[in-house]
């Protein structure tokens, strides 16, 4: 069985639903099974069900690499259930941490920051830039992940050293830092910087001290109430 275009499309489409049934017990367990089923025949499905019924969790965009590699392993058929289970267990954590660092912690906030600045200055351009640029990277990993996973099979983990992860992350860290500095110029010279600085320092301290995010939102709420009352 090879990775035909129709088979690829089925796996890609199923990948968009990987978190649909996310639960604390199995996390993306059912989503991963559904994603594998999309690219498997009836005999393979029986084997997949026996081997992967349970816990699975990785970064949703990175799951395509693991799905591609797992399907290749089933196509080759010379791998035991224990080996394949170990392979999935190891790769899911590696891809999860890389994906979280790349997308949730760097690429998405950096792009949202750029989009917010552009939106305030130029209106609709900001949201448009975000949707196009973010989904370029998002869909790139979803699409290439299936192909590269299938091509590299159990060696797919070595792809984490590729420039698409390391260099892209570094570039967006720099862009994020640059636009963080630029953010201050969003207002105008008339803006009350004496008011802005203490609030900024307060929230940096709250974030650095790792206060719970609910508490931080409550602090924002309190701040707004105090400021509109004054």
């Amino acid at each position: 069985m090879r990775l035909s275009f129709t088979r690829f499309l089925k796996v890609l489409f199923a990948g968009f639903f990987i978190q649909t049934s996310w639960s604390f017990f199995s996390m993306q367990g059912m989503g991963f099974l559904y994603n594998l089923f999309a690219g498997a025949d009836k005999t393979q499905r029986r084997k997949i069900l026996k081997t992967h019924k349970g816990f699975f969790n990785t970064h949703p965009y990175m799951s395509s690499y693991i799905v591609g590699a797992t399907l290749r392993a089933y196509d080759e058929g010379n791998i035991s259930p224990d080996e394949i289970r170990n392979f999935v267990a190891i790769t899911q954590t590696s891809f999860a941490s890389t994906g979280d660092l790349l997308f949730w912690q760097t690429l998405r906030p950096a792009m949202l920051l750029i989009a917010a600045i552009l939106a305030v200055k130029s209106g609709i351009i900001g949201p448009l830039v975000f949707v196009i640029a973010f989904n370029f990277f998002h869909l790139f990993h979803r699409i290439r992940g299936i192909y590269d996973g299938y091509r590299m099979s159990r060696d797919v983990i070595y792809i984490l050293k590729a420039k698409r992860f390391t260099t892209v992350r570094h570039i967006f860290e720099i862009l994020g830092a640059f636009f963080a500095g630029l953010l201050l110029s969003l207002g105008s010279l008339k803006m009350n910087y004496l008011l802005l600085l203490p609030i900024t320092i307060l929230f940096i301290l709250l974030l650095m001290k790792r206060f719970s995010s609910v508490l931080i939102i409550l602090a924002v709420l309190l701040l707004i109430i105090i400021m509109v009352m004054v």
Binding site: Q105, T106, P109, A110, L113, A116, V120, E173, I174, G176, A177, F178, F179, A180, G181, L183, L184, L186, G187, M191, N192, L195, L196, L197, I199, T200, I201, L202, F203, I204, L206, L207, M208, V220, L223, I224, M227
Partner: peptide, 26 residues
């Protein structure tokens, strides 16, 4: 705008300020 900018700046500094990126913030 002042409130959102302050919190946005704090968020961005928390996420992106490192020894290697200080120069880009400046």
């Amino acid at each position: 705008t002042i409130i959102a900018l302050s919190i946005g700046f704090a968020n961005a500094i928390y996420l992106f300020l490192k020894k290697s990126t200080v120069v880009y913030v400046i």
